[in-house]
Measured scan of single mutants.
Amino acid sequence: MDETGKELVLALYDYQEKSPREVTMKKGDILTLLNSTNKDWWKVEVNDRQGFVPAAYVKKL
């Protein structure tokens, strides 16, 4: 969790967005987890953008 109590995830792999609903991340990025109710796609925030990334590409910290 960060200082505001939000849950964080670590990008395990690079991911290039394939639609406007997704976000690009690089391996090693720390992202804010917004929603993990879907087992396949998690909603995150990175670089002031919100979108989805494959759940298998990130790990909760």
Score class of each variant (00 low, 15 high):
N38M: 09
W42G: 00
K18Q: 14
G5Y: 14
V44K: 00
E17F: 05
S36M: 09
I30Y: 06
W41K: 02
F52W: 15
K43G: 04
V44P: 00
E22Q: 09
K39N: 11
K43S: 07
N38K: 07
Y15Q: 01
K26S: 09
E22A: 05
Q50W: 07
K39M: 10
V53C: 03
M25I: 15
M25W: 02
Q50D: 06
D29C: 07
A55D: 02
V23I: 15
L31Q: 00
S19E: 09
K26H: 10
K43M: 14
M25V: 09
V58S: 00
D2S: 15
L10T: 07
L34I: 15
E7K: 09
D29V: 04
W41N: 02
Q50P: 05
S36K: 07
I30K: 05
A56D: 09
N38C: 08
D40V: 14
R49P: 00
K43I: 14
L10S: 05
K39P: 15
K59T: 14
A55S: 14
A55E: 03
L33T: 01
Y15L: 01
Y13D: 06
S19C: 09
T4W: 12
G51H: 02
A11N: 00
V46R: 15
E45K: 10
F52Y: 15
T24R: 05
T32R: 12
G5E: 13
A55P: 03
M25E: 00
D2N: 15
K26N: 08
S36D: 15
L12M: 09
A55N: 02
N38L: 09
L31S: 02
N35T: 07
D40K: 13
E3Q: 15
W42E: 01
L8A: 06
E17L: 07
G51I: 05
D29A: 07
K6T: 11
D29M: 13
Y15I: 01
E17G: 15
R49G: 04
D2P: 14
L10W: 07
K26V: 10
A55W: 02
D48Q: 12
T32V: 15
V53Q: 00
T24Y: 04
P54W: 03
D14F: 04
K43A: 08
T4V: 14
R49D: 04
P54K: 03
T24E: 04
G51L: 04
V58Y: 00
G5S: 13
N38G: 10
Y13T: 07
L31T: 01
V46L: 15
D14I: 02
L33R: 00
A55Y: 02
M1L: 13
D48I: 05
T4H: 12
L33E: 00
K60T: 08
L33V: 06
K6Q: 11
D29G: 05
P20M: 10
K6L: 11
V9E: 00
K43N: 07
A56S: 14
Q16F: 13
W42R: 01
A56C: 12
K59W: 10
V23M: 11
K39Q: 12
K59P: 02
V23S: 02
E7R: 11
T4P: 14
L10M: 13
R21A: 13
W42Y: 07
D14W: 03
A11M: 02
E7G: 09
G5H: 14
N35D: 15
R49S: 06
R21V: 12
T24I: 03
K6E: 09
A55M: 05
Y15W: 11
Q16H: 13
L12R: 04
T24M: 04
S19V: 05
V53Y: 00
A56N: 13
S36Y: 07
A11G: 03
L31C: 10
T4F: 14
V53M: 01
A11E: 01
K39C: 09
K18V: 08
D48M: 10
E17I: 06
V9N: 01
K27S: 07
N47R: 12
V46C: 10
L34W: 05
T32K: 13
K18L: 09
Y15R: 02
E7P: 09
M25G: 01
D2I: 14
T24W: 04
D48F: 10
E45C: 11
D48N: 14
K18R: 14
L33K: 01
I30F: 06
N47K: 11
L8W: 13
A55F: 02
E22M: 04
L10E: 12
Q16I: 15
G28P: 00
Y15M: 01
N47F: 11
L61G: 04
E22H: 06
L12Y: 03
E22I: 04
A11K: 00
Y57A: 10
S36G: 11
V58A: 03
Y57G: 06
Y13M: 11
K26Y: 11
P54R: 03
M1E: 12
N35E: 13
F52G: 01
P54D: 01
E3I: 14
K26E: 05
T37D: 14
E22N: 05
E3A: 14
P20R: 08
D48E: 10
D14R: 03
E17H: 08
N47Y: 12
L34C: 06
V53G: 00
Y57S: 09
R49Q: 08
E45G: 08
K60C: 09
K26M: 09
Q16T: 14
V53A: 02
D14C: 05
E17Q: 14
S19I: 04
V58W: 01
D2T: 13
L12P: 00
D48S: 11
D29K: 03
P54I: 02
L10G: 03
L61S: 04
E3L: 14
D29R: 02
K18I: 07
L61I: 15
E17V: 05
V53E: 01
V23T: 06
L34M: 07
Q16Y: 15
K18E: 08
L8E: 07
S36P: 06
E17S: 15
L34Y: 04
T4I: 13
V46S: 15
P20T: 11
P20L: 09
G51E: 02
T32H: 09
N47S: 10
Y15G: 00
A56H: 12
M25K: 00
R21F: 12
D2C: 14
L8M: 11
W41I: 03
L8N: 06
D14K: 03
T37V: 10
G28Y: 05
D40C: 12
R21M: 12
L12D: 02
V58T: 04
Y57M: 12
E45N: 06
T37F: 10
M25P: 00
A56Q: 11
A55L: 02
K59N: 06
L12W: 04
T24N: 06
K59E: 13
I30P: 01
T4D: 12
G28A: 03
M25S: 00
N38V: 05
Q16M: 12
V53K: 00
Y15D: 01
K59F: 10
Q16G: 07
A56I: 10
P54N: 03
K60N: 07
E17P: 15
G51W: 03
D14S: 08
K59Y: 10
Y57C: 10
T32C: 10
E17Y: 04
A56T: 11
T32N: 08
E3V: 15
T37Q: 11
A56P: 08
K43C: 12
K59C: 14
Y57I: 07
K18A: 10
S36T: 09
E22F: 05
L61T: 07
L8H: 09
G51A: 03
Y57R: 05
V53L: 02
K39V: 11
K27I: 05
K43Q: 12
P20F: 09
D2A: 15
V46P: 00
T24P: 06
W42S: 02
Q50V: 15
W41Q: 03
V23Y: 04
V9P: 00
E17A: 15
F52Q: 03
V44M: 01
R49L: 06
E17K: 13
V23Q: 03
D40A: 10
T37A: 12
W41H: 03
L33Q: 00
T24A: 06
L61R: 03
W42P: 01
W41Y: 07
G5D: 12
N35Q: 10
G51D: 01
P20N: 10
R49E: 05
G51F: 08
S36Q: 11
L10D: 01
S36A: 13
D2Y: 08
E7W: 12
Q50K: 10
A56K: 14
K60Y: 08
D29E: 11
D40H: 14
I30C: 06
K18H: 08
E22K: 04
L61D: 03
R49F: 05
V46N: 15
T4M: 14
S36C: 10
R21L: 14
G28E: 02
E22T: 07
V44I: 07
E7Y: 11
L12K: 05
I30M: 06
Y13E: 11
L8P: 05
L61P: 04
D29H: 05
E45D: 06
K43V: 15
G28D: 06
Y15E: 01
